[in-house]
């Protein structure tokens, strides 16, 4: 994709603009010169071998990692500026591989706490929204359960409800199904599928190629911190351009 030296100008549609982002941990270069744009309402799927920098790039988008250099604009706000970070994070929901639910709160409490403390909603309103979201992720009966009483799939669905309660414009998924037993993967992917259908802007780091084929608008192949190939889902599955993409796909498909 690095065919032309001319960068297209960002349009109003581009809700995430990443330009020449570098990030290293000590001597390890996690992300090298990454440039990527995500349009509003688009599902962008990032895949590649482990340790390739996928998670790091994703975590840069909501400021959990601070890039060493480069430009990162999310919904018109510069993420690299510390003053913007809390604001950006209320617009960007994140779902983690290991769920990171708050163990001292019930499912309902997990979903209401940020609504009350950050969005300043009343307890009643926050709980009403939380119950609606639990309904939406298919587990209204688990409102009073603590995380330890839930299965992995249920935990991940609560985690998604927690993120959605903030009415984010963008959802980031960091390997949301990698820590799940196979029979639980579908219940999580189903919720993600619904979200995609509703037009949520999503950036997904995952190895679920079936999910990618069904929902992704664009696919990004990342290896050793570099974006090797970026293409529409159709192009990438049918005729990948880069040799390394072909090799990787042949290993996992």
């Amino acid at each position: 994709m690095k065919n032309s030296g001319v960068e297209p100008l960002p349009t109003d549609d581009d809700i995430i603009v990443i330009e020449h982002v570098y990030k290293s941990f000590g001597h390890v270069e996690a992300v090298v010169d990454a440039s990527l744009r995500v349009k509003s309402g688009e599902v962008c799927f990032i895949f590649g071998p482990s340790g390739g920098g996928k998670s790091t790039l994703l975590r840069c988008i909501n400021g959990l990692e601070k890039p060493d250099s480069g430009t990162l604009i999310v919904d018109g706000m510069d993420v690299t500026k510390k003053a913007n970070i809390d604001q950006v994070r209320t617009e960007v929901g994140m779902v983690f591989q290991l769920f990171n639910l708050f163990p001292h709160l019930t499912a309902l409490g997990n979903i209401t706490i940020a609504q009350e403390k950050v969005r300043k909603r009343s307890k009643e309103e926050a709980e009403r929204i939380a119950r609606e979201l639990l309904e939406r992720v298919g587990m209204p009966e688990k409102a009073d359960a603590y995380p330890e009483q839930l299965s992995g799939g249920q935990k991940q669905r609560v985690a998604m409800a927690r993120a959605l309660a903030m009415n984010p414009k963008i959802m980031l998924f960091d390997e949301p199904t990698s820590a799940l037993d196979p029979e639980m993967i579908k219940e999580v992917l189903d919720v993600m599928l619904d979200l995609a259908k509703e037009g949520m802007t999503m950036v997904v780091v995952s190895h679920e190629m079936g999910f990618a084929r069904a929902t992704a608008d664009r696919m990004v192949f990342l290896e050793e911190g570099r974006i090797i190939e970026e293409a529409t889902t159709e192009e990438l599955f049918v005729s990948p351009k880069e040799e390394r993409t072909k090799v990787f796909l042949s290993h996992i498909l």
Partner: peptide
């Protein structure tokens, strides 16, 4: 675990809110 503060921050809480409502109670 570090993930607790990350989760708190990613739903928009400030560092002190994360401490107050998520980390310290545990």
């Amino acid at each position: 675990q570090r993930g607790q503060m990350e989760a708190a921050r990613s739903v928009g809480m400030s560092y002190f809110q994360g401490m107050r409502y998520i980390i310290l109670p545990q």
